[in-house]
Amino acid sequence: MEKDNSMTINRAAGAAAISTRATDIGAEHGVVVSERIWDMGTDFGHEYAHRLDLSTVTNTVRLYFSDLDLRAFGNKSRKERVEDRLQRAIAQLVVRTPSPMYRY
């Protein structure tokens, strides 16, 4: 029972750290992440047990994480992997004005 409680705490801490990092990465790219909604799965053996929806006023992007991603977020290689995924997700939320197709 104590081990389950410890894993739950580690999982919650990892989710909070990932959420904070997503907001920080968004700010670096001029994106205001208005919502970070987690759906914490119950099948921890599933490759993508947990879901995170990052939303701006106009767009939403969905990411999936394994239980290990959350529990071991402090691990250097795991953190780099997760941050890379966050960077790609935030890039999808960046608003770009289309350039004109023709010049006069």
Rank of each mutant, 00 (worst) to 15 (best):
A13R: 02
M1Y: 08
A22W: 01
L54D: 02
D24R: 10
I25K: 02
M7P: 00
M40L: 09
V57K: 05
N59D: 12
V95R: 13
L68I: 12
R71G: 07
A16P: 00
R36S: 15
A13D: 15
R96D: 14
R21L: 11
F44S: 08
G74T: 15
F73K: 05
N10F: 15
E2M: 02
N10V: 07
S34E: 09
T23I: 09
D24C: 05
A49E: 04
R51L: 10
T97S: 13
M7R: 14
S99Q: 03
R36T: 15
A27R: 10
P100H: 12
G74N: 06
M7T: 01
R85F: 04
I90E: 13
T58N: 11
A49D: 09
L52Y: 05
Q87C: 10
S99Y: 03
S77R: 09
V32Q: 05
A49Y: 05
M7Q: 15
E35K: 10
R96H: 13
A13T: 14
R51M: 09
A12I: 08
R85G: 12
G74S: 11
R51P: 00
I18K: 09
R21G: 13
S99C: 14
G41C: 03
S66R: 06
A22G: 04
A27C: 04
V32I: 07
I18Q: 08
